[in-house]
Amino acid sequence: MKIKSGWVQFRVVKKVSQKDKQKEEKPQLIEEITLTDPCAVPIVFHEKKGQILKLLIKKEMTIIDLKHATGMNPGTIKRHLDDLLLYDIIRISKEQLSEYSIMMKYYRAVAKRFNFNITWSGN
């Protein structure tokens, strides 16, 4: 399995650890999800985070893949991903060793569509 990772191609080693197997067994992407945390609203509607989220709905990607797709700095992408992870909008779909012994972490959106169910009460 060859994965293009920007400036270098890393082939994923076939040997998958038990931890990775468990992660792979998880469902890849659900149809829709309802978020109830009001703090998640600015996260999803943030321009750059939204751009990243769209890409992660299409397929799982590493930070280097996202760097090439968005043109953003890896550090900036990392911070956006941390925010998205914090509100369970995305997840780490798998961690695999490349044939060059480099750990590769893949990110994936948890759902194709996000609904918000937020109630505000003055009482």
Binding site: T62, G75, M103, K105
Partner: peptide, 11 residues
């Protein structure tokens, strides 16, 4: 950090 964090970059 580059080789093991999974993100293939460091700061």
């Amino acid at each position: 950090d580059i080789f093991t964090s999974g993100d293939m970059f460091t700061e």
